[in-house]
Simulated assay, not measured.
Amino acid sequence: MKITDIKKTKRGCYALFVDGEFLFSVHIDILVQYKIKANEDISIERLEEIRQQSDLKKAKEKALALLSRKSMTKKQLTEKLKRYAGEYEAEQAADRMQELNLIDDEDYARRCAKDLTNFKGFAPLRVKQELVRRGIDCETAELAADELDIDERAAIAGIIRRKFLRFLNDKKDIAKVVNSLARLGYGFDDIKYVINNLDEFD
């Protein structure tokens, strides 16, 4: 097999042609590292190594771009990278971001837990569930939720006063309020107590 041509692409990579046919594009750093030149013989094994290293380089650059826009868990980053790279490259790139401390699931869990409580009104139970859904392991999610130290009945009262006060005069509406609060992770006993004793939480 012979590299018959190398052409720069619009995205800044280099298209590799082998035996007259386009094979794949190569990152410029990999092109230099492997000293790839036209009109040179190359083995299938060497080509596969170049392809994998180039794809890994691209995945790492994509990971940096994604993390520059928003914080993510390692799982979230890996899943997003799989849209642009293979599973191996996505996992390796995410591992590298973790080594560089650009992703930190424990720190993410603590910050996200506070945001979920402050902005969405989630109870610790729902916070834990949401963190696990985002890729945080159960133990880390539970620790982050426990650190919130929320007075759940006071939180329920605050949500009712902000959103549901006008719905407490009808049994059907009250049932909807109870279900809405339960979806936020609050217990039925606490919800019913607060509804029946709302004046205690002035």
Score class of each variant (00 low, 15 high):
R51Q: 15
R51Y: 15
Q52P: 02
Q52T: 11
Q52K: 15
S54V: 10
S54G: 10
S54C: 09
L56Y: 07
L56D: 08
K57G: 01
K58Y: 14
A59Y: 03
A59R: 06
K60C: 05
K62G: 00
A63W: 00
S68T: 03
S68D: 14
K70G: 02
K70N: 03
M72Y: 08
M72H: 09
T73D: 06
K75C: 03
Q76K: 07
L77G: 02
L77W: 00
E79D: 14
E79T: 14
R83F: 09
E87M: 04
Y88A: 02
E89H: 02
E89L: 03
A90P: 00
E91R: 11
E91V: 02
A94N: 01
R96D: 06
M97L: 09
M97Q: 11
M97P: 05
Q98R: 11
Q98F: 15
L100F: 13
L102A: 01
I103R: 02
D104M: 11
D105N: 15
D105F: 08
E106T: 13
E106L: 11
D107E: 12
A109K: 09
A109M: 07
R110A: 08
R111W: 01
C112K: 14
C112V: 06
A113F: 01
D115M: 02
T117S: 05
N118K: 11
F119R: 00
A123N: 07
P124F: 09
P124R: 07
Q129C: 06
Q129H: 10
E130T: 15
L131E: 12
L131D: 11
R133W: 10
R133E: 14
R134V: 03
G135Q: 10
G135I: 14
I136V: 15
C138Q: 13
A141E: 14
A144K: 04
A144V: 07
D146M: 12
D149A: 13
I150Y: 10
E152A: 12
E152G: 10
E152V: 14
R153G: 06
A155H: 12
I156P: 05
I156N: 07
I156A: 04
G158N: 15
